[in-house]
Nucleic acid binder design. Structure first.
Lengths: 238, 238
DNA sequence: CAACAACTTTGATTCAGATCAAAAATATGA
DNA sequence: TCATATTTTTGATCTGAATCAAAGTTGTTG
């Protein structure tokens, strides 16, 4: 009965098809194609007409905006199973860049939009995704506008840890950072030197350890949480 | 034929009903009620269960997030005809505060969600609103993360000017600021002293004039635009 | 219209993070 | 494995905006 459930797709269209029936899944299968991008490659340019929507199969991509003189700010981070593209929009107003090597599962926009029109629960799913992104954007505005460098770094590490735990609750405290210091700086509204200094300050305090360029281990999660500056209520405990 | 087109509603449910037929409008009329809030009053607290969605009839409201120690950051600004509340969400994760005196046209959430389920074009309209908010949030992230105090203030004034022109293309350069220096500071990720200094610097340079506490006149729109730091392409001219 | 409260401006000082400048560590690849 | 390129760390200095502190405005209310 579930014979065609996205059978050859590593992420099984998780972003769109949780409640799709076989017929809908077949439609998705028929409009999809995979594409690989190298690290640093631009997937979509600001203002470019949208020809596909896509879901991330593997790797990390980011959304970035740039000022006149070249200062840039990341405004979104896309991890596997996240979705790119918005129904009804003709173009994006930021650049989408492959942060690491990225594989996309792309759907042609025309038939995809037809599918959205035909199936209210897909439309509803996309609405949920948009609202999740909006909530994330608002947390990020608080971070960018009011947090100190230390709080920004602690929040960043905590977010990676939570994302990892969500994907695999049995995981240990070891994290692979998907970005260079420079990319992290663009994400947090800092410079790369400040990012480096704050990582090493947390290391010196025994909150984390660093090994190689991208391995972090969280030693003291409570201290890390405390360093984020966030309101503690709304959390799981206390 | 259009007898019930939101006849006694000052904003005619602009946020939701552009394409509603008479039957749908009657349903909206039957679930609506007006409510007034004084300036400074909290309309909804973070975490509180959502009982209404609403559209702003008059006044200005803001969405705010707060850190442990009280630092706050506005994450959204709602002007007349803007919409509060999201389909499918049980609560909001920020405070909604009346910045000025505010009148809301509220709809009970249960029948409203039923209406959304029944009418795809209303669902689609809400999706557009969410995507507009997302785009605005991302512009704001660029501002908060990378712009200087001067650029932030120029961007703020320019936004008010554009909103005013959108509402009434025949308007002159005079603007009424809907917020105090302190509220503007919370919007832009600054302190109120810095806001004051930057307003007065632009005044001294002849870019704007200030009169009373809340009247601004834009004298030199080009200089103002130039001071925003934004990429000039994508604009109307050049 | 006087007195008060709320808001805004201005000035002096401090400080977090940016900037500038090497040096050190880690990767990459011949 | 050695040479080279990239990324990260560390140090010194500078600066924009925060902070602290009055004084000056504007608006409100009895």
């Amino acid at each position: 009965m579930n014979a065609v459930r996205c059978n050859d797709c590593p992420i099984r269209h998780r972003a769109v098809c949780a409640r799709c029936d076989d017929d809908e899944l077949t439609r998705l299968e028929n409009m999809k194609s995979y594409k690989r991008y190298d690290a640093g490659e631009t997937i979509m340019w600001r203002g470019e007409p949208l020809e596909h929507v896509a879901s991330i199969v593997d790797g990390v991509a980011s959304l970035s905006k740039t000022l006149e003189d070249g200062r840039t700010q990341m405004v979104g981070l896309l991890l596997p199973s996240d979705f790119i593209g918005r129904p009804g929009r003709k173009e994006v107003e930021f650049d989408v860049v492959a942060t690491t090597e990225v594989t996309l599962c792309r759907f042609e926009i025309k038939p995809f939009e037809q599918l959205v029109m035909d199936t209210p629960h897909v439309a509803q799913r996309l609405m949920e995704l948009a609202l999740d992104e909006l909530d994330a954007a608002r947390d990020w505005m608080l971070l960018l506008g009011r947090k100190t460098a230390r709080e920004k770094i602690a929040t960043f590490i905590d977010m990676l840890a939570q994302r990892k735990i969500a994907g695999n609750p049995e995981s240990d405290g070891t994290l692979e950072m998907p970005m260079t210091r420079d990319q992290i700086a663009n994400y947090l509204g800092l410079t790369l030197e400040t990012v480096s200094r704050q990582f090493n300050a947390l290391k010196k305090e025994g909150v984390i350890t660093l090994s190689g360029r991208k391995q972090i281990e969280v030693i003291d999660l409570l201290a890390l949480r405390d360093a984020t500056g966030d309101d503690s209520d709304g959390g799981v405990l206390s």
